[in-house]
Design a protein around this nucleic acid. Structure first.
Lengths: 121, 121
DNA sequence: ATAGAAGTAGTAATGATTACTACTTTGAGG
DNA sequence: CCTCAAAGTAGTAATCATTACTACTTCTAT
C-alpha cells in the first residue's frame, strides 16, 4: 500500500469516529478537507483498509465502518442504535463445536434494546 | 394474509429446499409452475413470509431464505458453503449481559470451514 | 352476487457499490 | 536528484439487488 493523503484522511476519520459511519458519511467528511475526492476513492480505500485489518466493516442494510476490529455489535431495529459488545468467546464456542474458524468480520446481532422494549411501541 | 397460489407455491419451494435459495433462485423455480409470475411478487411474498415468521432471511451479499426459523448459520467465505448450527444460547448470553432481546433474524458467522482450512489454499 | 381489500404482472426507479478511463502521484533503484 | 512503472485518483457509467408504482385481477366476508 502506497501513501496517499486520501487514504490517510479516511483512516483518520474512522479512527476519530464514534458513530460507525457509512461510506457516504465518510465521503462527506473527507470532502471538508479534500473537496474533489471521489466517492469511488472512498469505497476503494475503505475496502483496502478492511483487507489490511486496519478497520472493520459492519454489514447492515448499508455497510458501516469501525476502527475497532476485535468486537461485534448489537443493532436495535427500532432506534437503529449500534451497541458495541465484546466477542463473548463466540468464536471459541464455534471452533470447539464445529471446527470452523470464525473471522467475525461482521457479526451483527439484530434485536430490540432495553430502552425500546420498555417503551413498548 | 389472503390466500394466493403464488405465495402458496413460494412457501412450498422454500419448505422443500435444502440449498438456502436466493430470491432469484425461488423466482426461477416458481416460473416452472407459474410462468408469468413477476420477480417483484416473489420479493413481496418472501418479505411477508419473513414478517409472519414462516421462513427466515439470511443476510449475505445476496439475501437467502431458509424454512427453519430457529437456528443460525456459518458461512464459509472460501467455498460459500452455508452450515446450519443451533442457536448455542447466544440470545440468552446477550440478554443476560446486555439486556438486549436478540431476534436472531439473520445471525451469520463468516469464516473458514474445516475442509478449506485443511486445504490451505 | 358483490364490493373493496389484498394480490399480481410488468416496468421503472432507487440506491449502494463497482468498473472503467484517462490522468496524477508515489517511491525504489540508478 | 531523476525516472518510470506501479499504485492511486476523479469522474462518470454501469451493475445488481431490491422496492415503488400503475393498472388490472382475485379473494372472501357480508
Amino acid at each position: 500500500m502506497k501513501y496517499s493523503k486520501q487514504r490517510q484522511k479516511i483512516l483518520e476519520i474512522i479512527n476519530n469516529s464514534y458513530n460507525h459511519p457509512t461510506a457516504y458519511m465518510v465521503y462527506e467528511e473527507v470532502k471538508k478537507d479534500i473537496p474533489d475526492i471521489s466517492l469511488g476513492t472512498v469505497y476503494r480505500n475503505l475496502n483496502s483498509l478492511v483487507e489490511n485489518n486496519m478497520i472493520k466493516k459492519i454489514s447492515l442494510e448499508t455497510d458501516r465502518y469501525d476502527k475497532n476490529t476485535d468486537h461485534c455489535h448489537l443493532y436495535c431495529i427500532k432506534c437503529n442504535k449500534i451497541i458495541d459488545i465484546g466477542l463473548l468467546n463466540i468464536d471459541t464456542m464455534i471452533m470447539d463445536n464445529y471446527n470452523f474458524k470464525v473471522l467475525n468480520s461482521d457479526v451483527v446481532l439484530k434485536g430490540i434494546c432495553s430502552e425500546c422494549r420498555e417503551r413498548k411501541d
